[in-house]
Design a protein around this nucleic acid. Structure first.
Length: 717
DNA sequence: GACCTGCTGCGGGCTG
């Protein structure tokens, strides 16, 4: 039987009305499987290949929506994606008379109330809204979501290996518990590649045996051009901006400059050039600190602009699923920190069937160019960096303990333990450990023992009743920026925030005229000239394989036809510099340059291993300066022989806990990367530190195979 | 230099 014939009549009518000539490959395969079995599936195929329909066509054909209760729950990492998918799914559901409801923080309350009166159909939700319901209205979870047939998880790769993903896994476990029947899960993604990731995906959805991967591997041609313009740290070189302008002025373009400040710089400067030469005016910026309404306008403009060209300078806010219509070109400025991110970004262009994707990459620094090359070549080898799974997510545990206790408004210790040990996310955490953490939460007054029951303690009340409780990630404090009642965006408090300072925001230039520190508000007026805004962020970790590839490129002689002349020169120069080291095995050998008491060690390893190695060396009184982007350790006062003896002598069986506890006692801010980790007993904090910040095992394995290739010649850096 | 993500419940003010 063909896939089309398996579909229910209303769905077939939908397809006929849409005048689709045929089903896409991924749709054919998914329809066959989903309709005939109750397995979990993960559908993998590139952006704009009809994945949403591949999941919903068969699910809508199969599920009996006449039964009471919500039948399908769609979970998305982004509100914008929910709003986008809502229109598509609702359109599809009109043929079936199935209600579709958006349920997130910005969704209309009226629609939610209607759903509560008559639970039915499909609900689109975020993990945080689901969490909020578990905490505040657990009876609504039962009322709405105890008769689920399907859960659809969009952009599932974005949850994989992240804390937010662990949180979602815990919620899926808790949802299954209130369901009498087992529900099936369908995950959607464009960015999963190798077999290792398949295993992690299957684990994510529960018993790996229950999950099958369906994949459409049809490649999409990508035209890539890499250009090099030497730049300074602070501002982009003018020739780059001019080249960028000329290349993009007659296209619909997304530009990814990696940082919010730089996003603003690109948007404002391109707009200025365009104004001078009489080009189009549609230059925008799009990132988390641009006002929501402004962002929505930008998205709307891009979606509906068939004739007009536009240029949106953005961060990863436009990296995921939202369909912003036709984009001709994607521009990346300097290296992405991951291959996964590069794939997502490139996929933003050429969404229409048969159209190629176009990537322009500009590098402003030699190491960034080398990393860009490494990412691009690995992408072509279909490699994506591995997913870091935290097997013992103690911080998520703290969060979920508070959520369960608040949700039940009082629960016995034994029942709480039962809930947690029954949750597969915490299966690697021992019962005694859970008990110890609960006891610690009692000493912190986060929990309180009342007779036989645990309730939220005095200190806990403040945390649990805060609006900030529903998410796993920490957020900074921002000042709201507006001009004459019009909201523009937000800025963090920095030395830059003072009267008469001129800054870029939302692709415009402003002058600060008033700051209200109490209300955290900044009033601005339009200005003619200014500076890019300062934001604070954490450096992203770069994977081991990318760094190794960088060295591989340096010792190879391969030429790259997509790289411009300047870029080729830069790579040639780097190769020349490193040719003084006779490296034949890029997997084990690393350059070490010695001159007197100054050592330059090029580690070519992951950011985490770099941080770990620096920490270990520091413990051994070997002070070093680490430049992660160039993988360079600069070490003074030690000869290479000494260094090698020290590295050999590192006790790899040594228990780091004592040292890490000391580190945390002296610098408690080290745990700040984990919002809930702060409330753990200190030995559990060290566990998180080892798992997420450092990589001791990786570092020891790296040192084990490390062979220095030394040179003492004059070496210009 | 160096990303991103989401958010309850209540009450006040306004509109129809």
């Amino acid at each position: 039987m063909t896939a089309f014939n398996l579909l229910s009549e209303p769905i077939r009518k939908y397809i006929r009305d849409k005048k689709w000539e045929s089903l896409r490959k991924i749709q054919e395969a998914a329809i066959q499987k989903i309709i005939t079995t109750d397995n979990n599936y993960v559908l993998i195929s590139r952006t704009a290949s009809g994945k949403t329909e591949a999941a919903f066509l068969p699910i809508l054909s199969k599920v009996n929506f006449k039964e009471p209760g919500v039948k399908v729950l769609y979970i998305s990492p982004l509100i914008a994606l929910i709003n986008d998918q809502f229109i598509r799914v609702e359109n599809l559901c009109e043929y079936l008379d199935v209600p579709v409801t958006k349920w997130h923080g910005e969704a209309a309350k009226g629609a939610k109330d209607r759903l509560l009166k008559n639970p039915a159909g499909i609900v689109l939700i975020t993990p945080e809204s689901l969490e909020a319901m578990f905490v505040n209205k657990p009876y609504n979870i039962k009322h709405l979501f105890s008769t689920l047939d399907y859960i659809v998880i969009d952009e599932i790769h974005s949850f994989l290996g992240s804390d937010r993903g662990t949180h979602l896994q815990s919620l899926l476990n808790r949802l299954q518990k209130v369901n009498v029947k087992r529900f099936s899960i369908v995950g959607l993604s464009a960015t999963v590649s190798d077999a290792n990731q398949y295993i992690e995906l299957k684990n994510f959805l529960g018993d790996p045996k229950d999950t099958t991967i369906i994949r459409d591997n049809t490649p999409k041609p990508i035209n890539a051009v890499f250009r090099y313009f030497e730049g300074s740290v602070n501002t982009l070189p003018l020739p780059l901006l001019k080249d960028l302008y000329v290349r993009t002025r007659e296209s619909k373009v997304l530009i990814f400059p990696n940082a919010r400040g730089r996003v603003e710089e690109v948007a404002v400067k391109l707009k200025q050039i365009s104004e001078r030469v009489g080009g189009h005016k549609n230059y925008f910026s799009h990132h988390s600190s641009v006002d929501k309404e402004v962002r929505e306008y930008v998205e709307f403009f891009a979606k509906n602009s068939t004739l007009q060209n536009f240029c949106i300078s953005c961060t990863s806010t436009l990296e995921l699923g939202i369909d912003i219509g036709n984009v001709d070109e994607v521009v990346q400025i300097d290296a992405t920190h991951s291959i996964a991110s590069l794939i997502q970004r490139v996929g933003r262009s050429g969404r229409r069937e048969g159209k190629a994707s176009n990537l322009f990459l500009y590098a402003t620094d030699k190491w960034s160019l080398l990393q860009s090359l490494a990412c691009w070549l690995l992408y072509q080898e279909q490699y994506i960096e591995p997913i870091a799974i935290n097997e013992k997510p103690y911080d998520v545990l703290v969060y979920q303990i508070l959520s369960i206790v608040k949700g039940t408004s009082g629960i016995s210790s034994s029942k709480l333990l039962e809930e947690i040990t029954g949750n597969s996310v915490f299966s690697k955490i021992k019962k005694e450990e859970i008990e110890e953490i609960i006891t610690h939460l009692i000493t912190l007054d986060f929990l309180e023992k009342l007779g036989n029951e645990l309730i939220i303690g005095i200190e806990g009340e403040e945390v649990v009743n805060n609006r900030d409780f529903y998410s796993l990630f920490e957020t900074q404090i921002f000042f709201k920026v507006s001009s004459n009642g019009v909201k523009i965006g937000e800025l963090p408090l920095s030395p830059q925030i003072r009267k008469n300072e001129n800054i870029y925001l939302s692709a415009k230039i402003w002058s600060i005229i008033d700051i209200d520190f109490k209300a955290k508000k900044i009033e601005v007026v339009p200005a003619k000239d200014g500076n890019k805004p300062t934001f604070f962020g954490n450096p992203a970790d770069t994977a081991y394989r990318i760094r190794e590839k960088m060295l591989e490129i340096l010792i190879s002689k391969e030429g790259y036809d997509f790289l411009d002349e300047m870029g080729c020169e830069v790579i040639d120069d780097l190769r020349k510099q490193f040719s003084v080291f006779t490296i034949s095995d890029f997997k084990t050998e690393r350059p070490l340059l010695t001159s007197n008491e100054h050592l330059s060690f090029y580690s070519f390893t992951s950011s985490k291993i770099n941080k770990t190695l620096q920490f270990i060396l520091n413990q051994l009184e070997v002070k070093s300066i680490l430049h992660d982007e160039g993988c360079l350790f600069e070490i003074e006062g030690h000869s290479s022989t000494e260094l090698q003896i020290i590295l050999k002598g590192i006790d790899r069986t040594q228990n780091m806990d004592k040292i890490l506890i000391e580190l945390l006692e002296n610098n408690p801010e080290f745990i700040d990367f984990s919002k809930w980790g702060k409330y753990l007993p200190i030995q559990y904090q060290t566990s998180l530190l080892k798992e997420k910040y450092f990589d001791f095992e990786g570092c020891y394995a790296y040192l084990e195979r490390l062979k220095f290739v030394e040179n003492q010649l004059e070496f210009s850096n």
